[in-house]
Design a protein around this nucleic acid. Structure first.
Lengths: 143, 143
DNA sequence: CCTTGCCTTGAAGTCCACATGAAGGTTTAA
DNA sequence: TTAAACCTTCATGTGGACTTCAAGGCAAGG
């Protein structure tokens, strides 16, 4: 499949795919006789992996280092796991921040009046609720 | 309080506070006789609101449009609620995407082998799990 | 043969969210 | 009175992640 088809299939622009290849976020892509990229499903999956991690807020730089480690043949399982865990923590924190902001907006939506003049009381309450949620690890308002 | 104290109190740089004021993300700040910003708790709260929404991934542009609506004196409660809900949806989707990526990484961490050559089977399983979670609205692995 | 439509590379441009620098003002302390 | 430590505005710089441009190649259709 050529780069345009790959672009349509993944929703990633042709230029971005070339950029990802250059930055080694995806493996070197095979070329046809005339030098055009010939993209297979393995590449498509890796483009999607990049997209997912990028959407989750991972930088190109970290993603590159991460992928380098995984692609290396040596047995660096330990470092790989450490890197994975590190990234997981970053993402979990991000998710929690996001959830706190969602709670904040939901609160505004439910107690709709002058949201901009929120009193310290309101804020303390929100923080309390958030702390409780993190402790109980039970009650969840997803969806 | 002067801008440096406000910066220390909020963790937002002085330059960023000036920038937020210029971009109308926070109200015009009162000045002292000599022209220095005199920042009160109302401004501090609004800086914190901006910080939270920025951390949640809201762009300056959208935040400005959002705040404009809220600051307008006319009764546009309806539009305000609509805007709030819209933003909530964006953020919830973002959170879910993030959670999916976390699940993905957790899966890799638990079934540690060649994550790069993940089969379609694995991916389908992940998607299934995600769908189930969204439906059940019960089981949550936060924290 | 020429246009259309795809592709290639390399370089330069763009957008965002600030950061930094220049040039100058005020207050306090030595 | 001079230096330190704040402040002001306005202009320019920066970094990341691409996007767009320039110049050209290949293959098919009319």
């Amino acid at each position: 499949m050529n780069i345009k088809e790959a672009s349509e299939k993944t929703g990633v622009s042709s230029a971005a795919i070339r950029y990802y290849e250059k930055e080694s976020l995806i493996p070197a892509i095979d070329r046809t006789e005339v030098g055009n990229r010939d993209i297979d499903d393995r590449i498509i999956r890796r483009i999607r992996f990049v997209t997912q991690m990028r959407a989750a807020g991972m930088s190109i730089e970290n993603l590159r280092r991460y992928i380098e480690l995984f692609d290396a043949q040596e047995d660096n399982t330990k470092e790989q796991k450490a890197l994975l865990k590190e990234q997981l923590e970053v993402m979990e924190e991000k998710r929690d921040d996001l959830q706190a902001a969602i709670d904040h907006l939901n609160y505004k939506l439910n107690h709709f009046y002058d949201h901009m003049e929120a009193t310290e009381e309101e804020l303390r309450q929100l923080e309390k609720q958030h702390a409780e949620k993190l402790n109980s690890a039970e009650s969840d308002d997803i969806k």
